[in-house]
């Protein structure tokens, strides 16, 4: 008897709370959304706002102290100094190359895992293998690539029979290493997109006389566009924001995020770093707008 009464005492209270929340759906919604909204508004959008505002400030060149006076001078410098334009274009080029390489690798890989491999067990095993690089430390992977690309490394050795040298540390090494790092972020969305693609659509296409290549072109690719967009946002923005890999395998190469890093650390010019950090945001927003305008997302 006592046992049921103690058990029964807790239960009605939670049940009463549940019933109360059930009747007051606004309260329920508030309980559900308060933590994520606080997180998003205060920590994310708030700090983004602070960054945007501070990008308009300046630093006293003599004392190095913050001058809270609004001006466009940081942006002016970014646009007019040829160095920054070169680095920006190079970074954009690296991001596009990394995205394209990952796309070319991820499409057949995801297709194989989703549509060719028979049996759930193998499929999961392969998916785990795809995500495995994410388990190791970033630095370990970075230095592994450095050793491979460095003089006398594995890559030089591979090119040797052709009478060639490897590309060494530099731009190529940076692109390859970053493409390797972000590949899982491209494979997974495309895999998910393929999983959502009903088998019967592929069969219907074949049934109507389309060869496998034609089915790929006319049915699979158009329906995968949203997944490719999702994956490319990952690879693109991750590349735009990266400054460590280029330091490890890039030799003297600089990427745009290095400008941010150097201005925070060495130069101590936080407003200029903030202005530089706006660049990747603008690029991603521009990309999203372009995707939206193309109408590729309207078929969902």
């Amino acid at each position: 008897m006592t046992e049921t009464s103690t058990g029964g005492k807790g239960a009605p209270a939670t049940r009463r709370l549940s019933a109360f929340l059930y009747r007051h759906d606004r309260l329920r919604l508030a309980g559900l959304l308060t933590p994520p909204i606080l997180w998003l508004v205060v920590l994310y959008i708030g700090s983004l706002g602070v960054m945007l505002v501070s990008s308009l400030w300046g630093v006293d060149s003599f004392t190095g102290s913050l001058v809270k006076k609004v001006s466009w001078s940081n942006y002016h410098t970014l646009f007019t100094e040829p160095v920054y334009r070169t680095v920006a274009l190079r970074t954009l080029g690296i991001a596009i190359s990394v995205t394209l390489i990952d796309l070319v690798l991820a499409l057949p890989l995801a297709f194989f895992i989703s549509k060719v491999v028979q049996g759930r067990r193998w499929r999961y095993a392969l998916l785990i293998m795809v995500t495995m690089p994410l388990w190791a430390s970033y630095l370990v992977k970075g230095y592994a690539w450095r050793i491979m690309f460095d003089k006398g490394g594995v890559i030089d050795w591979m090119f040797a029979p052709l009478g060639l040298h490897g590309p060494g540390l530099g731009l190529t090494a940076t692109v390859v290493a970053l493409a390797y790092l972000w590949l899982p972020y491209m494979v997974l969305p495309i895999y998910a997109g393929l999983e959502r693609l009903p088998e019967s659509l592929l069969e219907a296409s074949a049934d109507l006389g389309a060869s496998p290549l034609r089915t790929l072109r006319s049915v699979v690719f158009p329906l995968l566009v949203p997944s490719v967009v999702a994956g490319s946002i990952f690879t693109f923005s991750l590349t735009l924001g990266d400054y460590i890999m280029v330091k490890i395998v890039g030799g003297t190469t600089q990427m745009f995020a290095n400008i941010v890093y150097d201005n925070v650390g060495v130069a101590g010019n936080l407003p200029f770093a903030a202005a530089a950090a706006v660049f990747p945001i603008v690029v991603i927003l521009g990309y999203l707008l372009a995707v939206r305008r193309s109408g590729a997302l309207e078929n969902l």
Binding site: A204, S205, L208
Partner: peptide, 25 residues
């Protein structure tokens, strides 16, 4: 030609394009 249980209409094409698909390929 097959009529599928779930119809298997191509969601990214209009009705007209769906019907034309076999002739297009």
């Amino acid at each position: 030609n097959t009529v599928f249980q779930d119809y298997a209409l191509f969601p990214h094409m209009s009705v007209q394009e769906n019907v034309e698909y076999g002739m297009r390929v």
